[in-house]
Amino acid sequence: MFNNFFHRMASPKHFYRLAGILIPWLAVPCLLLTLAGLYYGLVKAPPDYQQGDSYRIMFIHVPAAWMSMFIYVVMAGAGAIGLIWRIKLAEMVAISSAPIGASFTFLALVTGSIWGKPMWGTWWVWDARLTSELILLFLYLGVIALNNAIDDKRMAARAVAILALVGVINIPIIHYSVEWWNTLHQGPTVTKFDKPSIHLSMLIPLLLMAVAFKLYYAFVVLMRARCEVLDRERNSGWVKELAEKT
């Protein structure tokens, strides 16, 4: 029965339909959590005694940075599953994750930079986290570029999976090397992102936003994977039927 379930799940047609049902069930809670997170983050949480209201950028920056790492790991995991068990769905999830991950990485970089301006007085500081995010963005762009460069969709998916796996082994190494480099060349400023303790009134919106971002990723990746299914199955009967109805 278990096997049967997976088999049906992995059939593109069932996936397409199931994803279509799931998307609103993920999107609505995501929206509600985002609104709650914004309310607690922008209205309820008191200003920081050091940074004033500027720290509120954290409620986007930190969850986005978490997501950027999380999505890369998911992408590599899905890619590995696709490579080993030849499950097309896993390949599609891996491919669909790349642009979303790149978006979150970009967001973490930009908000980090905007946050840095009032804190450090410059738009860019070679801070350990920002530098890691920058390299992560390059890794994502490499994945996307490789996917675009290969015309054959299945071949592209497998190439991307290998690249993502190589990347995921390297990410911790890059991360620690950058951190180490950062402590060696300690700049004039001390990082203000990492606080040893965080007050509950700030932790609540942070976690709300983090969960909202996770849900956001879940439904957007399903939306993208649905497009992948349509593209790959364009010659099958059910896709043609679907196309004629629209």
Binding site: I135, F138, G142, A145, L146, A149, V166, N170, S177, W181
Partner: peptide, 27 residues
């Protein structure tokens, strides 16, 4: 190996490989 059959392999190669060279460069 990932880009060997591609027409514009060279540009993509640098994008794929250079970020992975970072730890070696740093150490």
């Amino acid at each position: 190996a990932l880009t060997v059959g591609l027409r514009k392999g060279g540009m993509i190669l640098s994008l794929l490989v250079l970020p992975l060279y970072v730890p070696v460069l740093i150490f």
